[in-house]
Design a protein around this nucleic acid. Sequence first.
DNA 1: TGTTAGCACTTATATGAATCGAGTGCTAAG
DNA 2: CTTAGCACTCGATTCATATAAGTGCTAACA
Lengths: 353, 353
Amino acid sequence: MTSAVGGDTQVSERAQHFLKALIERYIRDGQPVGSRTLSKDTGLELSAATVRNIMADLEDMGLVSSPHISAGRVPTRLGYRLFIDSLLTVRRLAEQEVTEMRRRLEGPGDAATLIESTSQLLSGVTHLAGVVMMPRHEHDAFRRIEFLSLSGKRVLAILVTSEGEVHNRIVNTDRTYSPAQLEQAANYLNDMFTGRDLHEVRKYLLADMKTTREHMDQVMLQAVEMAQQVMEAAEGTGDCFIAGQTNLMEFDELANVERLKQLFDAFTEKNQILHLLDRCIAAEGVRIFVGEESGYQLLDDCSLVTAPYGIDDQVIGVLGVIGPTRMNYPRVIPLVDMTARLLTAALKQQERT
Amino acid sequence: MTSAVGGDTQVSERAQHFLKALIERYIRDGQPVGSRTLSKDTGLELSAATVRNIMADLEDMGLVSSPHISAGRVPTRLGYRLFIDSLLTVRRLAEQEVTEMRRRLEGPGDAATLIESTSQLLSGVTHLAGVVMMPRHEHDAFRRIEFLSLSGKRVLAILVTSEGEVHNRIVNTDRTYSPAQLEQAANYLNDMFTGRDLHEVRKYLLADMKTTREHMDQVMLQAVEMAQQVMEAAEGTGDCFIAGQTNLMEFDELANVERLKQLFDAFTEKNQILHLLDRCIAAEGVRIFVGEESGYQLLDDCSLVTAPYGIDDQVIGVLGVIGPTRMNYPRVIPLVDMTARLLTAALKQQERT
DNA sequence: TGTTAGCACTTATATGAATCGAGTGCTAAG
DNA sequence: CTTAGCACTCGATTCATATAAGTGCTAACA
């Protein structure tokens, strides 16, 4: 997939040095950088003319390009790629910064609010849009189910997982049930399934509904149906939090209303973002999509930096930031990385307490 | 508060007619309308020159103004006010439209999703930003409380209201409790409070915690504390849903990134919006804020059209739309009104089923 | 062979003048 | 009270010109 860098030419040590300088400069200023600027910028004492030659080489290799003939050079997607993969020197975070970040993830925090704070933290420290994928509940364990009859023929089904997540759903039934009946049904399910994997339970229930229909008590049949529905609701909870979208409005390269509308629509839609994050869940450590690499043209001049988080070495979700391709990678990368670690730690601690 | 319309001059019948025409035209095109255009637009056969005189009068009265000397006229806030209060002829909605709207509010719908669909419906039909205030749970009735011990010293408190809303919160306790203890505590609270007003219950609990501290069983004390916390969570749910924010990007008058950022930040913050809506809950029927009338300068060139909704004549919330001052009032007003009625109906029906 | 200086060339951007057009206010006549 | 006419204003458009940044290329140089 990653097409060889323009022909098979090796990028000389020196050329790389200049590419790095160019990108760092471009990230600072946001404007095409010219040969003169660059010749002063790097430590090496080379004249602008020489730099021009080198830049021409870089352009041949597809690492930089100029928006028009009399402008400086701008990194291309490939340029960024090379930069990120082998040139970039990440800045270590100051101890103080880390403490501050950790502080912002403290608090009582049930899972949902923790996730929310995390996305706010991300957007806060990077000044980009922060996004955190909610852990799916598929493989939580069944803890307890309960049915409460509401007015009319409606029953409220409440499911609690071993993680302490509460899911509920109102189910319309075909007749009324007495509290005793409902309690009996709940007891049956609780005895049967407590401690077992949610997804397994659901498969089991679905099978039950099909095969043993005739052998079952009317009440039990309804109970199975209701349980099935509340579990559907629980599994559907897979979602993501996005915070700080408006930060993206600050960047000139995205600052046309047309473009922003598309992006924001995608943010409210969310499922594209969700898909994209899903693809990162396998990766270990920080993963970066530059521009079109994501496969979504709506992120064309945006980059996505992600890192997985979890509990006890088991990855349960992905978080990251979305920003313009021209983002401050050396700073953003460690921030995303650290946030993932802190969230992991916070979840672990929550487990323990 | 509504300052007399520029001096105490009466606005002549004819002038009003022209103001109406002018505003309707301006709503269509979004551009200052000149005397010639207007003279053709109205039924009356008057020359542009005459119209100019009338427009000069309207300007003196502060109902219109011109952005610069050689542009047409634009309605002012006062102009809109007069238009809305006495000139405007609302268009009746087509039967078909109403059916379509009703359809979009059908479905299984627990309260939260119904609210969400409603705000989407609003933004969908008006092409503006739709906002629905969530009903506060303060005065729901206590139905049932339950405690489940999680790993460590954490207890999951679940509260169900008679409306079928489920609220939950994880509480950190100072020691571990056995399932039996927790059940006993829950039973006590359930016996004591079932069917009573949530707000009352909470006040009672708070009082309890202060006064009878020494006379109480350790377990009960903790139970009261936990109940208190989950009820706090329930009351905190007062919130609002906003949908279709991005629709506002389509309007030229808001289409500068600076402005949009402010607006969107307010949308994510929400509490200003919430305050504003709160002020409308008393009003009967549709209520309209034009521009600065809202008191929030961030809505300076926006208008807010709201209507209350409820169950059985009891108002429980407010919904509406936010859009540019130049919005299509004759269409938007009946849409907001109808949405409020439909939501009211839907809630009522949900009650019944 | 790599580096540098010089120079012609390109192009975005800024500036200013000229023109156009929409619309006004005013006056005078009907 | 209405209308026609006219001078005037001011934004928007167009065009030409100048400016500055930056390039590519060539030739000289170490």
